[in-house]
């Protein structure tokens, strides 16, 4: 029973339309957009921000905001990397993911404790822990770019298939890490839609007091949420360094802002309560295309940030305009009804 009116109020169709227009434009100008290697390249660059965006979206839906996930990912992967190197580990990469996820869990739990149990403001807490984790990484572990253990290096060379562009002679490999993204997306979808925990995240974002009165364990849900984000960040960290085949501690720092922007662009309401995985992935896709493919139509990479900035401003501006318009329309229809 989904009516057309309800669809047009969502922002996913607009983002999708923007993606299609942009791809067609690039295709028309360069003829290269829909080539196999470009699409594989895009998918490749999408993996890490998309993994981050899933947790980020869930936090924003719950009415919070998290800027610490890149710091958690960096510290977790760096420590894991060092542990495995020091112990000359040569086994399966799963252990690397497990250690990193575990470290992420611990770091996320600190966020969860401060936010869920002490009820401290989310932005400030995650700013603080972000600074703490980055500092620990560079201070206590004096982190700098480092090799990765063989398990991770091997994992990084696992490719699903290779796409070749016959005209340009370029090839691109689809990394196996995309399977992790797909798994995370399925898991997150099931969690958000079919568990009380997932509905609880939306309920808290809608009205925290009402959620408490209804019998949701608000503290527990927040604790879970930030732990989940931590685990996800830990996994993302390993995925990233395995694709790069070296561990650069600063490679993910600063991504929080673009990920948040992508999530909001995908229709997640900044004040909480609304947001979808589809929209989030579309938002990330749009940002990825902007930063990856503009070069195909001759716009130098130096200028890509101007475009991402403009898209954030226009995208959020349209959303803001829409909310005001619907609010006005609603007020008027209520008046008419009365």
């Amino acid at each position: 029973m989904i009516s057309l009116g309800r669809i047009s109020k969502r922002s996913e169709p607009y983002v999708l339309a923007a993606i299609i227009l942009l791809s067609l434009l690039i295709q028309a100008r360069s003829g290269q957009f829909f080539s196999g290697n470009n699409l594989v390249d895009l998918a490749r660059s999408l993996i890490v921000p998309a993994l981050f965006s899933v947790g980020c979206m869930m936090v924003i839906v719950s009415g919070g905001i998290d800027v610490s996930f890149p710091a958690i990912a960096s510290l977790a992967m760096y420590v894991t990397d060092k542990i495995l190197l020091a112990s000359n580990y040569s086994g399966n990469v799963i252990l690397a993911y497990a250690i990193s996820a575990g470290l992420g869990l611990l770091m996320g739990a600190l966020n969860g404790f401060l936010i869920g149990f002490l009820r401290l403001p989310t932005l400030v807490v995650t700013l603080g822990t972000s600074s703490l984790y980055t500092g620990l990484m560079f201070g206590a572990f004096s982190a700098s770019a480092s090799d990765v253990p063989p398990a991770i290096a091997r994992h990084g060379k696992e490719i699903l298939f290779t796409a070749t562009n016959p005209t340009m002679g370029l090839t691109s490999n689809m990394p196996s890490q995309i399977l992790i993204l797909i798994a995370v997306l399925i898991l997150a979808f099931l969690l958000l839609r079919y568990t009380m925990l997932g509905r609880g995240i939306y309920a808290i974002g809608g009205d925290e007091t009402a959620a408490e009165r209804a019998g949701f364990n608000v503290r527990g849900i927040k604790m879970f949420l930030y732990c989940f984000v931590g685990v996800l960040a830990g996994i993302t960290g390993i995925a990233r360094i395995s694709m790069m085949t070296y561990a650069d501690p600063s490679t993910m720092l600063g991504m929080e802002m673009t990920v948040i922007a992508a999530v909001v662009l995908g229709g997640t309401r900044v004040t909480g309560g609304m947001g979808s995985l589809t929209g989030t992935i579309l938002g990330v896709a749009l940002m990825t295309i902007l930063s990856n493919s503009l070069i195909l139509i001759g716009i130098p990479t130096y200028w890509t940030r101007v475009f991402t900035g403009a898209v954030i401003i226009i995208g959020t501006g349209v959303t803001a305009h829409q909310t005001i318009a619907t609010r006005r329309r609603r007020a008027q229809s209520q008046k008419a009804a009365a």
Binding site: R199, Y202, A203, G205, G206, D207, T209, A210, A211, R213, A214, R269, G272, G273, M274
Partner: peptide, 10 residues
């Protein structure tokens, strides 16, 4: 309650 305790977003 006066505020009904409903979830506006659901």
């Amino acid at each position: 309650y006066q505020d009904f305790s409903v979830f506006p977003n659901l």
